[in-house]
Amino acid sequence: MEAVININVTDLLGNKHQIKAPTDMGLNLMEAIRANDLQIKATCGGMAMCATCHVVVINSHLLPAMSEDEEAMLDDAFLLNIPHSRLSCQLMLTPEMDGMEVKLGEGTGE
């Protein structure tokens, strides 16, 4: 298992970016995306309270289960009906996520 993983992020313009992120620094996916200079609004900073870090997970990966808070926030933001939606701030990076592909949701941009 690598301490640094690769994640593929598709931005709102459809451009693909491969970002590298350490798994031993307590980062979540939203923070990793932001640290790589990609636009992600993430208004509330990571409290699952705004849904502006919404991503759609493209390939199947072992991800932590959604908490009640995350599910309720996605539902309130009308995003739960988009399949494989997650709040990237709630996805703590783990070695198992190496190779994961996500697409940024509309709400992450202007």
């Binding site: 208004t43 849904a51 309130d76 709400g107």
Partner: peptide, 8 residues
């Protein structure tokens, strides 16, 4: 009241 999102 489904939340507010900031726009520049």
């Amino acid at each position: 009241l489904f939340g507010l999102s900031p726009k520049l």
